[in-house]
Amino acid sequence: MRHDAAFSDFVAARQTHLRRIAYALCGDWHRADDLLQTALTKLYVAWPRIRHEGNEDAYVRQIMVRANIDESRRPWRRERPSDEVPERVDQVGTSVEERSALFDALQALPEQQRKVVVLRHWLGLSVREAAMELGVSEGTVKSHSSRGLAALEVALAPQRHG
């Protein structure tokens, strides 16, 4: 199908970036995969409209941010289609995972601080955009941003001064 080809092209082009966003939000590749699976399935269903609007990346990111927020309010929940098989033994641990102290510090931030830092300082959203995406005030974004970066600076200090 034509839609399938276009959707596959989008996934091929963007999945590495989108998976990294999911990982930055939750700090766990398995949860990140769940997040992205959910978001891309919804994108596929809405593909004609979203593609027409040319807003695919933002649509996926929005779903991931919302889904992650929702998950954090509930017991851990995982849902998957049947042909998404669990990782085989030879696939476990083969991710090119190179977590630094900075990333660990990012994951140690309170959830909203972490999301603000990811949206504002990694993805480059404006204060206003981040506030709208997270459903908080611009002042809250600035506050989270300030405190989040302060905490991250501590983690970064050894390598900057060492």
Binding site: S8, Q15, W29, E97, F103
Partner: peptide, 13 residues
């Protein structure tokens, strides 16, 4: 600050 993970075949999505 962090790496990436192997991509998933687009066909699965």
């Amino acid at each position: 600050s962090f790496g990436s993970a192997p991509d998933v075949p687009a066909g699965l999505y």
